[in-house]
Design a protein around this nucleic acid. Structure first.
Lengths: 197, 197
DNA sequence: CGAAAATTTGACATGACTCAACTGGAGTGG
DNA sequence: CCACTCCAGTTGAGTCATGTCAAATTTTCG
């Protein structure tokens, strides 16, 4: 099993059109740390500075923050093959106001900012990988902002379960509500309404 | 004046840690088109496919889309030094549901998808430029999503005028309202409320 | 100046929130 | 195996922020 640890990440890199040679793969492996987390364990807690960018191999994590009243607002879910980080904290070294915790037992690959610099220095072609990764992220965020401006909560919920049926199965409804920016009660009423029509 | 056309773009590239030699600069110049637009002119209209990614040299543009009722929702403002595009349409060739129009007389540098590929092929180091550009975009979008989840309309408005005093001066309030996701009437009431306290 | 656009204001409707109570599992320990 | 707790989900009643519709006022600009 251990030998396959990096497969998912290497596949993603290959998919972006970069072929790494065996030596480069070794470099990459040497710069990522493998780590397991238990369900409910924190990867990052508010007011800590995020040391690692995490690539999720197994499990699913959520990134959320709190408002003045103490309500949680989930910014994103990251299942297998996705990344989890507060990039602002990671790159600028500022304490984060995010919490990132594991909703299932997780396995992740983590890279520090220093190691990321070394990695990009040794394999500059990987800039292309990040270029495409962040480009797709921008497109996704764009659609999310657009949706929040022009669609109702009901439409956004229906879109969510259609787009991420997998996540819909794995996380409780009140967390989906948090992600959508509504209360669990409101989501419950929307679901009720849906089942009637 | 004409000779300075590319200065802003070249400065941005330099700022990302890439030094282009004179030959590379010529390559770059040959792949961007320079174009002027009049105030109120469209760069992109809904249901067209976006052919060019536009770097704004002068003026300010807005990207918006319409909901079923015909209301405009502004997704972003792009002043000098920023980019304007519907990346989903630009990269996948799908017709866009965005409109991009100029709020002032504008000058822009435009690059087609084909030319962008040629550019990155000839100067692969530019992947680093886009890597950092989109990374910063992701961070900005992230903060916007976070703000829409945890702050009130009033707080978001105050944050907006503090963060983008320049844009606040240049665009009418009802468009800021649209950007914030509220009606012009609501914004007017918030401003009224602010002036009282 | 005069028309069009932007902003403000008022009255009313409505969607979502809050607070509270209740239901129904899932899991735990005696 | 039952009693108990914990948590997710649901439902009801009242409140509040924001939207809608309409009209008045101010500003912009040809």
């Amino acid at each position: 099993m251990h030998r396959m640890m990096y497969k998912l990440l290497l596949d993603k890199i290959t998919a972006s059109g970069i072929d790494l040679d065996p030596l480069e793969i070794e470099v990459l492996k040497s710069l990522f740390y493998y780590r397991k987390y238990r369900k409910h364990q924190y990867i990052l807690q508010e007011s800590d500075t995020l040391k690692y960018d995490s690539f999720i191999i197994k499990g699913i994590v959520r990134s959320y923050l709190l408002d003045v009243k103490g309500n949680e607002h989930i910014i994103k879910f990251s299942p297998e093959g996705w990344w989890a980080a507060d990039l602002a904290s990671f790159f600028s070294g500022v304490p984060s106001d995010y919490n990132i915790d594991c909703m299932e037992d997780c396995e992740v690959l983590q890279i520090s900012q220093v190691n990321l610099e070394i990695l990009l220095d040794k394999i500059p072609r990987l800039h292309k990988f990040y270029h495409l990764l962040y480009r797709n992220s921008v497109i996704a965020y764009n659609q999310r902002v657009a949706a929040s401006l022009r669609y109702t909560a009901l439409e956004r919920y229906q879109d969510f379960i259609k787009k991420y049926p997998d996540i819909g199965q794995r996380v409780p409804n009140h967390q989906i509500a948090s992600f959508l920016g509504i209360t669990p009660q409101s989501l419950s009423r929307l679901r009720n309404q849906m089942s009637k029509s």
